[in-house]
């Protein structure tokens, strides 16, 4: 298939991070993957070697839709050979996100995120009643 030309007058991006792609120009294949284990603890504590590939969200296969083009005859007519955009402003591209100015053939992206929050035990307060952090009853060992 013939691809159109993309014209962007102004592009402004602040941040591109965590296996994201900013592609200016045509490409053939884009493959981006991100696995995130986000552990938030009420106090600064880092054990280092925890949580590597033990969670099903990182290993479970995600079923893919198989596009069956055998019975479809696709015909694309580009009456105008350009796509033009005056300006693009993006604050952030993150976690296997793709920003692509230009044409491509295949894009395949996958993000797997596990989010865990650990709070200090506090028996004097009813749980989930108050999100404000208070000093812990038990001081955790460093």
């Amino acid at each position: 298939m013939m691809k159109r030309t993309s014209i962007v007058q102004l592009f402004h991006g602040e941040t591109v991070l965590f296996s994201s792609v900013l592609q200016i120009g045509d490409s053939q294949k884009i493959n981006s993957r991100a696995r995130v284990l986000a552990v938030q603890r009420q106090y600064e504590l880092f054990f280092g070697n925890e949580g590597e590939n033990i969670f099903p969200v990182f290993t479970k296969p995600i079923p893919k839709i198989q596009s069956d083009c055998r019975n479809i005859s696709l015909q694309t007519l580009h009456q105008s050979p350009v796509i033009s955009v005056r300006s693009i402003r993006i604050i952030a591209v993150s976690t296997a996100g793709v920003v692509h100015i230009g044409s491509t053939s295949t894009v395949d992206a996958e993000a797997r995120i596990k989010h865990i929050r650990q709070l200090a035990p506090n028996s004097s307060e009813p749980s989930m009643g108050n999100t404000q952090t208070t000093p812990p009853m038990v001081k955790d060992e460093k």
Partner: peptide
């Protein structure tokens, strides 16, 4: 933001497969 395997595309594509 464009995040968690999202795609912002100015152009043409044949196949796009995204999972999050």
């Amino acid at each position: 933001a464009v995040t968690s395997s999202a795609v912002f595309l100015i152009g043409d594509a044949d196949v796009i497969n995204l999972a999050s």
